[in-house]
Simulated scan of single mutants.
Amino acid sequence: MLPLPVSFRKRQLSRNGLRHSKSTKDVLLMRARVTNLGLLLLSGATVLSLLFNLSYYFSSPRGLLHQQLLHHPPPSDILSTIQRHDALSAIDHLIMVPGHAIWKGTDVRRRLDDEEWILEPYQRGGGRVAAFYQHIAAGAELARQDERALIVFSGGQTRPTSTSTEAESYMRLALAADLIPSLSASGLRARSVPRATTEDHALDSYQNLLYSIARFHEYTGRYPSQITIVGYEFKRRRFTELHRAAIRWPRERFHYIGIDAEGEEIIKAQEGERLNGYLPYTVDTYGCHDMLLSKRRSRNPFIRFHSYHSSSPELAPLFSWCPGPSEGGQTAVYGGPLPWHALR
């Protein structure tokens, strides 16, 4: 604190010649004292604000949950049921096949029949079902060529008329068609450990990507170093330009194989993708506002939610990231640490 000016330490004469002392109020209101008092008040307010924010973060449900999940493994009753084969430790390539419908059939010979699928009206005809099967077959063939690859079929329980998930139906069709490769390791019986699994919670393309990474980690115990997506060609830009950038996955380790339905239907599909897919994600990067959030809700008729907060706690902040005005707008990219950056 600055010293009191000398002129005010001395008694001063009033107009009538009497001496008097400055009051405490007068002293504090002098310029030097006002400066010091202001600094004290600002410093105190800053410390209190910092303490309050830290207290709020660590005591709030999101902050507390993140801290608990990050530092505590899943309960023993869950871990006791999990036994990963050693051969899974060599798997580092995620091949993701996003689901678009549900195969309800049992006869693989009828796999291209629309009546064997639960489809949206716009998906009927035009060879869409054939494209679905080509996605499955192409993903399986890639996995056969790369013994370090795991196929993840991704898609939730999106149709109120079926209790199956999109992913489970794709996996069932792939198994019925004998497409799925198995782990090649000594001591393993043929097909005992398939190099394919399902991700049963994604409700849109962004979640297809992010949740498949989390499911890969849940299944293998590690995060992938390479990602290949097998889907529609007309959705390439949505995945490679928007979703990949949203999770800050390195471009050089991200690959996309596009297969479209044949015929004139592709023109309608391309325009529909531009208006209802690509453009909405350019203004709502994480799909958590307005129209895109409404789509997620409509695709979750059975009120399902994922387990990845506990199995992949490193991703919990990214799962919850929904930027608004306070973060810089709905396109603000998540800037926190991500486990795949350590793989470089």
Rank of each mutant, 00 (worst) to 15 (best):
Y308D: 04
T282W: 13
A87Q: 02
L51C: 13
R251W: 09
L275R: 15
K25E: 12
M96S: 09
L275M: 10
M291P: 00
L188V: 05
H306C: 05
S55P: 06
L50W: 12
W340M: 02
N208I: 00
S320Q: 10
R109N: 15
S311V: 01
G221V: 00
Q12A: 14
R236E: 11
M291E: 09
A137K: 03
I151H: 08
V97T: 05
E327G: 07
S312W: 03
T220L: 05
S7W: 09
Y232T: 02
A316Q: 11
D146M: 01
D113T: 03
H66R: 05
Y286F: 14
T81V: 02
I227H: 07
P121L: 03
S186M: 04
S14G: 14
Q123D: 10
W117G: 00
W117N: 00
S60R: 05
G287T: 01
E327V: 02
S225A: 11
D284C: 03
P313S: 11
L150C: 04
V283Y: 10
L315M: 12
S310K: 10
Q123L: 10
A185R: 08
R238M: 06
R274H: 13
E314C: 08
L210I: 01
F132R: 00
L64V: 03
F132H: 12
V47K: 14
A149D: 04
S326M: 06
I259K: 08
P325A: 15
M30C: 07
P181S: 11
C322V: 02
A332F: 05
R251M: 09
I91S: 07
R84W: 09
Q134V: 01
L64R: 15
S55W: 14
R274M: 08
D146V: 00
G125P: 01
V230D: 02
L188D: 08
Y286C: 01
E120P: 03
G324D: 13
D284M: 04
W321H: 10
L150F: 05
C322G: 11
R248I: 00
I259Y: 10
V6W: 14
G156K: 01
H72G: 08
R109S: 15
D260C: 05
D107I: 00
V34I: 08
L188Q: 09
L183P: 04
C288F: 05
M1R: 11
H71L: 08
T285K: 09
D146Y: 06
R124A: 10
Y219C: 02
R144H: 14
W321L: 02
T24N: 13
E115R: 07
K104Y: 12
Y56A: 15
R148C: 07
S184Q: 12
H217M: 04
A316C: 11
I136M: 06
L42G: 12
G272Q: 07
D113R: 06
F52C: 10
Y56L: 14
S59F: 12
G126M: 00
L242G: 02
I78E: 14
R195D: 08
R11A: 15
A131S: 09
Y308F: 15
